[in-house]
């Protein structure tokens, strides 16, 4: 017979089952709000070095690529490093005159074209596989039948950045030698904004061809050949000075000299040597202007860089 006790038991069971699984919630007051939440900076125990890296590699690859090198510089200079990235070379260049960056790894093209304009000073250039120079590689898909640049007429082509030396300036020069321009030669031209993106675009068949930094292609081909193995190099350019490490004109001379000294002696330090080896760099050396002279010659042949154009228009 159902009694009051039985009903009470069922009620307790009912409530007990219903109440399970509701524990473990952390109370949070959502009412106290702030429109802006500025960085709560610790007392800056160390001075900060703002280091920019141009978009030669994609933002993620840049962090992977440069993290150890920047950490090394931070330890050696006793500075905190803030990595600054932007989508284009031009955006990085524009930070120099504003004094918003102290150091930068920039592409050869902007260095050769904008040294005087943006006021940066070369500190070091990497020596890779025995030479401080690099080349532009014209790459196509491994399975394609393209054998040289002329086979790519009417095809889709990828430039990295409008200011890139190996990724844009060199292929323009190749086309100029054929009496063509990118607009007349290719059916479509896209900008990938980094060399690894250009390699990916060719590997995935998004474009038919691209011009990339030879050092980066070799680096990826050795360290992570997943995409480079799907590509084939059909043309290499003449050598140019490798992308240098430059300092802002606003950086104190003493610190600038200290950084230069660290960079140039990095290969003599075991830890520095390991980091350089990881990046497939032999050592860093003082840049010589003659290495970058061919770039200026390219600009003379294919036209001034965008920055120089702007400067001319403003004057």
């Amino acid at each position: 017979m159902v009694t009051t006790k039985h009903l009470m038991f069922l009620l307790v069971l009912f409530v007990a089952v219903g109440c399970t699984g509701e524990a473990g919630y952390k109370p949070v007051d959502f009412s106290e709000r702030a429109t802006h939440y500025p960085p709560v900076r610790d007392q800056e125990k160390m001075p900060t070095l703002r280091v920019a890296v141009a978009a030669m590699t994609s933002p993620k690859e840049t962090v992977v690529f440069y993290r150890e090198l920047l950490d090394y510089l931070a330890r050696k200079t006793n500075h905190e490093i803030t990595l600054i990235q932007r989508r284009t070379y031009g955006e990085i260049n524009e930070l120099f005159p504003k004094g918003e960056i102290d150091l930068a790894f920039i592409c050869t093209g902007p260095y050769a074209a904008g040294r005087e304009v943006f006021g940066f000073e070369p500190l070091a250039t990497p020596v890779i596989r025995g030479e401080p120079r690099y080349r532009s590689y014209l790459i196509v898909h491994m399975d394609s039948g393209f054998k040289d640049l002329s086979d790519l007429k009417g095809r889709v082509f990828a430039f990295t950045d409008p200011d890139s030396n190996t990724g844009a300036l060199v292929p323009k020069d190749w086309l100029a030698a054929l009496g063509e321009t990118p607009g007349s030669f290719f059916s479509e031209l896209i900008y990938t904004h980094s060399h690894d993106n250009s390699i990916l675009a060719v590997a995935k068949g998004l474009v038919d061809g691209a011009a990339v930094d030879g050092h980066l292609w070799e680096y990826y081909n050795q360290k992570n050949p997943f995409f480079t193995s799907m590509t084939r190099v059909i043309k290499k350019s003449s050598p140019f000075g490798s992308p240098p490490l430059v300092a802002s004109a606003y950086l104190p001379t003493q610190l600038k000299n200290r950084i230069r000294e660290i960079a140039l002696n990095m290969h003599q330090d075991p830890e520095g040597r390991r980091i350089l080896a990881e990046l497939m760099i032999d050592r860093l050396v003082v840049p010589e202007e003659v290495w970058y002279a061919p770039v200026k010659e390219l600009y003379r042949r294919v036209g001034p860089p965008p920055v120089a154009k702007n400067e001319a228009q403003e004057s």
């Binding site: 473990g24 919630y25 952390k26 109370p27 949070v28 007051d29 959502f30 009412s31 106290e32 709000r33 702030a34 429109t35 802006h36 939440y37």
Partner: peptide, 30 residues
């Protein structure tokens, strides 16, 4: 958030490693 970030919410949860997320069950004042 339309009216700004709830200040208590910012510190209510954080990651425990670099590979995966961390779940926290929260209940608001409402």
């Amino acid at each position: 958030f339309e009216g700004g970030v709830p200040l208590q919410l910012i510190g209510a949860n954080d990651t425990v490693n670099a590979e995966s997320g961390h779940l926290e069950k929260l209940v608001s004042e409402n």
